[in-house]
Write a protein that binds this DNA or RNA. Sequence first.
DNA 1: TCCTTATGTACAA
DNA 2: TGTACCTAAGGAC
Length: 279
Amino acid sequence: MPEGHTIHRLAHDYATRFSGAPTHVTSPQGKFSDAAALLTGTPLTRTEAHGKHLFLGFGSGSGSDAAEQPDTWVHIHLGLFGKVTFGDAPAPPPTDTVRLRLANPTAYVDLRGPTTCALITDAEKQAIHDRLGPDPLRPDADPQAAYHRVSRSRTTIAALLMDQKVIAGVGNVYRAEVLFRHGIDPYRAGRDITPTEWKAMWSDLVALMREGVRNNRIDTVRPEHTPEAMGRPPRVDDHGGEVYVYRRTHQPCHLCGTGIRTADLAARNLFWCPTCQKK
DNA sequence: TCCTTATGTACAA
DNA sequence: TGTACCTAAGGAC
């Protein structure tokens, strides 16, 4: 379930389970074997997330100097299919799709199907930060930098929200849901989004994504709109969270009953309520 | 057992 | 804009 909240959660969980002690690093599938051989026995010293990019820092930092940088980073991007599985030691025999396994005396973690898993330098890592937009989950994020691009673009707000150079970490679910929550027509041009609307959407994303990290799932339905509150039978969305429009094609809108619409936008599925999202 | 689909991105044309 | 890539689950046969 790789949107930004998942990656920040992973950064935290990798650190919790593997910081400090030397880590046994392997690549059962083979595509990362050379790097694994270099890293094995080295401690994981730092983890970081920016948007959908995960960075695992190995080596150094073991001294008391907190400013010390890791010697090298593993750059991970899950893409559409990537999955991470944590478990307690002893680790079971890995299946042949495990790209990267970390193991220590108490825990193991398997990475499967990532679009990227590569050893990079600090400079290469910096280059990735430089090409990404602000991430609502990072304390250093500047929402104005994102609005600067949004406000001078003829591209639709739906496409801009998915553009990682504009804003990092928002994926198809948060995109659909934040537009619904603000009643905004997904086809409006970025330059027609007012500063007030952008501020509201940004702070909403910060809150929603923080909750996503906490719960490890995406919930966007306000308490007063839950099926219980609306006097309707309870419902489970098949992606594990409670949402207004994402993948609810043809189902009635929770607020007005109109059928949720879907369309192809830049090769991704777009979902929205044509009645509630007219702004 | 095969086909479709998916919360993503990069590159070619 | 189309296509390639990485994996696994669910549904159709």
